[in-house]
Design a protein around this nucleic acid. Structure first.
Length: 498
RNA sequence: GGCCCCAUCGUCUAGUGGCCCAGGAUGUCACCCUUUCAAGGUGAAGACACGGGUUCGAGUCCCGUUGGGGCUACCA
């Protein structure tokens, strides 16, 4: 290719269902490359298999790209100079190119029925041979074709693969690849329903849209020689092919794909859909950062970095050709890191819908006070409601006596400690967390118990939880009145026990 | 079965012939900090799949074996 060729890359999903995380990764790498090169990132919908279309998935895919910050420069909903960006709307071009190939002798009509194809395959397999089409119609005479046409047979169009020699192909991250032509198939380019197959359609569109780099998952590698030969037939400048490694299941068995949605590994649900990562409380920043680290690495080996840094450093030469397992634990770590980067206002905004979803009432002033306490200890957005949800609930069911009583304490001792703490609190007008902590430390010493024992009882009494945000900050936010009420409740519980 | 791709700690990775008795990250464990949980700090354990070559020298190049993955549709 000429060095002056402007970089134009595309993400070309089929709107056949929800966007998969592997698809998102492919989109991300294309996007990073485009942004790094100052090129264009294009979205094209490949909807040529009419039977598999799922309504709403095109909109869903676009919504996901938007959510994860992968803005495209041309696409179905925003247009562009090379439209339309929906493949089915480009059908005439595909049909025209297929016709041209037939005229040039590079393709031919095939009248074989599905049944015959199946039988041929089965027979070849039973003989231990490689399966595949036997090229029955490859050399039909003009008269034979006319006869079949007259009989009302609708042919498919197949590519006329060279029968001998080798196809030498270059992949940007794997180097020179070599394929024996004799093993290659006369692939179908145009189906009998008049729609092109992926092979024809993507290539004609990439050609028309002046795509400079075809960056896709490595499962396309086996059809690369076919595509290469097709470009040869068109006599066109070829794009650079880049085959990205595949993301494998956490157990390393098979690629992470849609059909595995909903399965669990070590008691944990394995997430595979772009939407599932949102539902699980992961930030788009964290998911993007995470995905960037699979199959690619920063020049300085940093793993936690903003997307601008990834754009800056994104070189194809740093793509690792080996398939990789999805390292989920790292996503949790990154998510925590990214949560800590957020401002109070921003994190409050992101946590808000989850609180609503948990049926909690939101007091925004209160939320702004609680967020700083929680930011340091969250890995998922869901951790907020789990640990700090009690701030937003009026109904407080007092904890069990067992929970209030700390290690190496008994009911009577705990009761005494809480009563003493209550006396100190009563004297205050309001809670000041620093002052209260000093008071309570002194009290623990007076009582001859460990601070942890006193603080633990107080924590459970006031929050109803063994684990909570820092105790005295929590009490200050809850307010003196609420704290006294809850301590009284605990005292009553302990008295019943004693 | 055939064809293709791939192979460094559990996992994600650095490494492009000497800088590597292999570095980072995560996870695990221990300790420190500490009112719980986190966060943070310090430390530990942990890998070049195997066998042949090439070379003065191989994680790095070549061949084979093994293992893993992908493709093998009128799906993409």
């Amino acid at each position: 290719m000429s060095p002056a060729r402007p970089v134009r890359v595309r993400f070309a999903p089929s709107p056949t269902g929800p966007l998969h995380i592997g698809g998102l990764r492919t989109a991300l790498f294309n996007w990073l490359y485009a942004r790094h090169q100052g090129g264009r990132f294009i979205l094209r919908l490949e909807d040529t298999d009419q039977r598999r279309l799922v309504s709403g998935s095109a909109e869903h895919i676009m919504a996901m790209l938007r959510h994860y910050g992968l803005d495209y420069d041309e696409g179905p909903d925003i247009g562009g100079a090379f439209g339309p960006y929906v493949q089915s709307e480009r059908r005439e071009r595909h049909v025209r190119r297929a016709g041209w190939l037939v005229q040039e002798g590079a393709a031919y009509p095939c009248y074989c029925s599905a049944e015959r194809l199946k039988a041929v395959n089965a027979e070849k397999r039973s003989r231990g041979e490689a399966s595949g089409y036997d090229r029955h119609c490859r050399d039909l005479s003009v008269a034979q074709r006319a006869e079949l046409d007259a009989a009302g047979e609708t042919p498919v169009i197949r590519f006329r693969m060279p029968l001998e020699g080798q196809t030498l192909v270059r992949d940007a991250i794997r180097g020179e690849l070599r394929f024996d032509n004799a093993r290659l198939q006369d692939a179908v380019l145009l189906k009998s329903d008049g729609f092109p197959t992926y092979h024809l359609a993507h290539l004609v569109d990439d050609r028309d849209m002046q795509i400079s780099h075809v960056m896709r998952s490595s499962e396309w590698l086996p059809s690369l020689p076919l595509h290469w030969q097709l470009w040869e037939a068109f006599g066109q400048e070829k794009p650079v092919y880049v085959h990205l490694p595949v993301i494998l299941n956490p157990n390393g068995k098979g690629k992470l794909s849609k059909r595995h949605a909903g399965f669990t590994q070590n008691g944990r649900q394995v997430l595979v859909l772009a939407q599932e990562f949102i539902d699980a409380g992961y930030l788009p920043e964290a998911v993007g950062n995470f995905l960037t680290n699979i199959g690619w690495s920063m020049p300085d080996e940093r793993e936690f970095f903003p997307v601008e840094a990834a754009i800056e450093g994104f070189e194809l030469s740093r793509v690792n050709p080996a398939d990789g397992v999805f390292p989920v634990e790292k996503l949790d770590w990154l998510n925590g890191m990214w949560i800590r980067e957020l401002s109070v206002a921003d994190l409050a905004q992101r946590v808000r819908p989850l609180l609503l979803q948990a049926g909690l009432e939101i007091d925004d002033a209160l939320l702004r006070k609680v967020v700083p306490l929680m930011r340091e200890r969250m890995r998922s957005l869901h951790d907020f409601a789990a640990m700090a949800g009690f701030f937003f609930s009026d109904s407080f069911a007092g904890p069990e006596a067992d929970a209030i009583i700390q290690r190496r304490m008994d009911a009577a001792g705990t009761l005494g400690a809480l009563q003493a703490a209550r006396l100190r609190l009563e004297e205050m007008e309001r809670i000041d967390c620093a002052a209260l902590e000093g008071d309570m430390r002194a009290l623990a010493q007076e009582l001859g118990i460990k601070v942890g024992q006193l603080f633990g009882s107080l924590r459970v009494a006031v929050t109803g939880q063994r684990v909570s945000p820092p105790l005295f900050e929590t009490m200050e936010i809850l307010g003196l009145e609420t704290c006294l009420e809850r301590i009284d409740l605990a005292i009553a519980t302990l008295q019943r026990q004693a």
